[in-house]
């Protein structure tokens, strides 16, 4: 069992937790992920790592409740435990491999969308610790959904944009990137993490602007160690497993349309289970899948 030390709701249905997981905390690097199970009957949920403390042996996760399983997770409080936390999985970010001098010469921009803001944080923080500056663009639907703002301000040059213009700049992250570019910010490395549709359009823009772009893919997974192949993607015409070959890939080579399509695989089944979980004993069909 893995004890939850802290649990907060950062915004509506976006939950942050600090969990005891000494082996993961000891070994993880920015870019990697972990898999949790809420309880003994739980599904395996892959989540990105938002922060870690090697001395305390803790990891921080941020998760948006979107299905039966993540709603269950969101209900847990400090003092409760998760049945399983396993990781770190996947490869660390390429940035961790590069020489610090090289990194210092680069103008790096991170583009974070929605709950994808969380996995950008450890990368920006890590760069700061190495003495490397970077820009971060956080995109959210509206002001209330902007998360981790204060912590980002301490580690980067932060730009916020909201779809409805209720906070920061107005419009999608692609508009913010284009505007910053036009304002004279000639980036030469981009990392985009967020919903697949956002990453797709960021990649389209950065291709036009000629900025090499890394994306972090979050497809359906089961074991997370390469065994099942559920998370396979086409990258540059080759089949890759996000769990062991990624999760980060060259965004200009990823087949996003195929990846987005594959996300629909269990939509109806998941929806049925979610309705069942929400309605409990009162669920008597109506979801279109039950008898």
């Amino acid at each position: 069992m893995f004890k939850i030390l802290e649990a907060n709701e950062l915004a509506t249905n976006i939950f942050q937790m600090i969990v005891e997981a000494p082996r993961v905390a000891q070994a993880c690097l920015p870019g990697q992920f972990l898999i949790i199970r809420v309880d003994e009957e739980g599904e395996r949920i892959p989540l990105t790592i938002c922060d870690y403390d090697r001395e305390k042996g803790t990891v921080e996760i941020v998760v948006q409740a979107i299905g039966a399983e993540t709603f269950k997770l969101g209900k847990l409080k400090a003092g409760d435990s998760l049945a399983d936390v396993v990781g770190p999985l996947g490869k660390p970010s390429d940035l961790c491999e590069e020489s610090i001098d090289e990194l210092k010469k680069k103008k790096i921009v991170f583009i974070a969308g929605g709950v994808g803001t969380a996995p950008v944080y450890p990368q920006a923080k890590w760069l700061k610790e190495q003495g490397v500056d970077c820009d971060v663009i956080i995109g959210a639907k509206t002001k209330d959904l902007v998360i981790l703002e204060d912590r980002f301000k301490k580690v980067c040059n932060l730009h916020i944009t909201t779809d409805d213009g209720s906070y920061g700049r107005s419009g999608m992250v692609t508009k913010a990137l284009q505007d910053l570019w036009d304002e004279g910010n000639k980036y030469d490395h981009c990392v985009a993490i967020g919903p697949m549709i956002m990453m797709k359009f960021v990649c389209k823009l950065t291709q036009e602007l000629g900025i090499p772009t890394i994306v972090s893919m979050n497809p359906i997974m089961v074991d997370g160690t390469g065994m099942c192949g559920a998370c396979r993607l086409t990258v540059g015409g080759e089949v890759k497993f996000a769990c062991v070959d990624g999760p980060e890939f060259d965004g200009h080579k990823v087949d996003f349309d195929q990846a987005m399509n594959r996300m629909k695989l269990y939509k109806t089944e998941e929806g049925r289970l979610m309705l069942k979980a929400q309605e409990g004993d009162t669920h008597h069909g109506g979801c279109g899948n039950c008898n």
Binding site: E41, G42, E43, R44, A68, E69, V222, D223, M227, C228, G229, A230, R232, T234, V239, Q258, N261, R262, K264, L265, Y266, E269, E270, L273
Partner: peptide, 29 residues
């Protein structure tokens, strides 16, 4: 081969056996 409905035997069996998805009440689809 990347179409929806193509699985490795490992995935199909892991879902059914380890995650008990053969049981209608399993939370893994």
């Amino acid at each position: 081969e990347q179409a929806m409905g193509v699985f490795s035997a490992n995935e199909f069996l892991t879902r059914s056996n380890l995650m008990k998805a053969f049981d209608e009440n399993s939370r893994t689809p």
